[in-house]
Design a protein around this nucleic acid. Structure first.
Lengths: 251, 251
DNA sequence: CATGAAATTACACGAATATGCATGAAGTAT
DNA sequence: ATACTTCATGCATATTCGTGTAATTTCATG
């Protein structure tokens, strides 16, 4: 295994497990603890993780500004959710990603007719406990706690076995040339697979995500059926997306 | 669990519960009280909490619903959960049913070592979001909202493909001659299948469930490894179960 | 192909950190 | 006032860390 592969693996594990224990990883990879420690030290210097006694932890989780962001963009997310919910037609099968934006969508889902919601997020599933007419299907797999969605081989297999009418995707960033991206490799693969098995894919994007790029590429913008963005953005910001032929829906 | 993780956990608990009791935390994490005390002393010096005799308090006033949580935690179900959690050993694979009793168990799961929790309940999965050392696997399937668990063909297939060390089952009723029963046919079949794929099955039973029977039979009492019941029940009530050779564990 | 530079890794060793236990002091409860 | 709990300190042990060093591999260049 190459050094860079090992380091990529460390990042991935941090996302998956929320911790790295130097001793454990050394044993597992059959390397000396020194090597792992060196990795951790260098990566901490690069700002990829937080070094602690015994191993490493992810950089301060977005908890501090999470609450603030939550309250700040709540209205924005509710508007996106409502707009997305308006697209749903009776009897359709909808796939919902995990995340706060899609949670807002879950709360806005139509109650006057029946449809099916497929999700790999237990949080979304719990949101729908009291929904009167939504049939809920839970996609199983290994639960990734940082994003609270089930992913992995089992999940992919289930996803390949279904055909959704609409997929509402949440992403970390959207960039005109880099396309749709997210911070986790497994998540990128999962979203891609869902998009392949959905007749239409709409991406929910809050203001601050436009024009940014994260490390893992999901798919180019053109592969999406449309972007749902908050109303009131300047046409300058939206022009690059419209120019690529992607439908931009303002909520 | 790393030291810094433990300290982060202390902060989190202070926010959640409004208090830290040194002795309790030491027992729960399987550490000496000295270690916890040292943590509290250092963290007090860093201005993260207020040290008091017996434990610590947050600097800001505790959450308003603290009293409510407190009364909940002295519940019968919490006792059952704690007793069940004490059976778990490092590295084991535990299957958790949905339901309020097993939710109490989820909150009492050991935090000092790693193990895997398999569940078909999104509610349980959400409970475990912040658990430091539990690996969570979500079993997918059609979500039955009345009991909030995923069941059906997909779930059964996944269950057949796994082998759990311990299964903690929640039931609607337990009767000496009718055995373990529940109100839903699909649920009975699912529980039976999990029990078949677990090395040991323990049933969590609150007081009011003993001696009753529901329409759908899961399995005879003798098929269970043991029943976990609240302490203080009369031996008359428990005798029939003990007579059948079922281990009855009082919590 | 040869060779030296750079990178990677394992090992050694003293320092720093973490933890548990023992003991006497301080605090709390009955 | 007495009994019990909790605390602080010192000490012993174990783990982890950082630095230095040497061996090995990889790479670039002639």
């Amino acid at each position: 295994m190459l050094t860079s592969q090992r380091r990529a693996m460390i990042v991935e594990r941090l996302n998956r497990d929320g911790e790295i224990i130097a001793k454990t990883l050394a044993t597992e990879l059959d390397l000396s603890e020194d090597t792992i420690r060196r990795d951790l030290r260098d990566m901490a210097a690069e700002g990829l993780l937080k070094r602690v006694h015994g191993g490493a932890l992810p950089l301060s989780p977005p908890l501090p500004d999470f609450a603030a962001r939550q309250s700040l963009s709540t209205d924005e997310k509710a508007a996106l959710g409502a707009r997305a919910a308006a697209m749903i037609e009776p009897g359709q099968v909808i796939f919902l990603d995990g995340g706060t934006t899609t949670a807002a969508l879950a709360r806005a889902l139509p109650r006057s007719f029946a449809f099916t919601v497929v999700t790999h997020s237990p949080t979304i599933a719990c949101e729908l406990e009291r929904h009167p007419s939504a049939d809920v299907v839970l996609v199983g797999g290994r639960l990734y706690k940082h994003s609270m969605v089930a992913m992995g081989a089992q999940a992919l297999e289930t996803i390949r076995g279904l055909k959704a009418d609409l997929y509402f995707m949440g992403v970390t960033a959207a960039h005109p040339s880099h396309g749709l991206t997210t911070g986790d490799m497994e998540e990128a693969a999962t979203k891609r697979s869902v998009a392949e098995n959905a007749a239409a894919t709409f991406v929910l994007l809050t203001r601050e995500k436009l024009g940014l790029a994260s490390p893992w590429k999901i798919m180019p913008l053109a592969a999406a059926s449309g972007l749902i963005v908050p109303a009131g953005l300047s046409s300058d910001v939206l022009a690059p997306y419209r120019d690529m032929g992607v439908e931009v829906i303002e909520a």
